[in-house]
């Protein structure tokens, strides 16, 4: 059965075989696990994997409980131009905010130059070491086990 599920994800099945497989998958728990396994494998290798965390479930629940607005807005051609122009101050304000945000990211936060302390082994930022090994290590053991400090 695992081989069949694997073949399915490799697009090696006809429609008739697919119907049989899907009815089999729904019957047995071990088949359902294989199904989940190959789905994760395929999504991860394609770079499409999105985990279903409890937070995601909560957000989806909240969205489902929100009342749905039925119907749309009436389009009034006489007010369209004015409405478009009304956006201009907002666009300008947003651009200024973006510029300020960019300057905040680029400018040093601590401008005092006389308070530097001696670098000691125990106080070397771990994120610096992790980032270094995650991109330069020739030792596979280091490469695969590093970079998890900042991961959630």
């Amino acid at each position: 059965m695992k081989d069949k599920i694997s073949s399915l994800f490799d697009n090696e099945f006809s429609d008739a075989e697919l119907d049989n497989l899907l009815s089999d998958v729904t019957k047995k728990k071990s088949h359902q696990q294989s199904w989940a396994y190959y789905q994760i494998t395929r999504d991860v290798l394609n770079g499409n994997y999105v985990s279903s965390s409890p937070m995601t479930d909560k957000i989806m629940d909240t969205i489902e409980k929100e009342p749905t607005q039925m119907g749309g807005y009436v389009h009034n051609s006489s007010t369209t131009l004015r409405a478009e122009l009304n956006y201009l101050p907002h666009v300008f304000a947003f651009s200024v905010l973006l510029l300020i945000a960019f300057m905040v990211f680029q400018s040093p936060i601590n401008s005092a130059s006389s308070n530097a302390v001696l670098l000691v082994q125990d106080e070397i930022p771990s994120e610096i070491m992790q980032a270094h090994f995650a991109h330069t290590a020739t030792n596979a053991s280091y490469f695969v086990q590093t970079g998890l400090t900042n991961a959630q």
């Binding site: 680029q106 040093p108 936060i109 601590n110 530097a116 001696l118 980032a131």
Partner: peptide, 18 residues
């Protein structure tokens, strides 16, 4: 690796070798 990073407020910058 060469890292260039602004020093956040309240953090003491480092100098020297280790």
């Amino acid at each position: 690796s060469l890292f260039i990073q602004p020093v956040p407020k309240g953090q003491k910058p480092k100098q020297g070798s280790a």
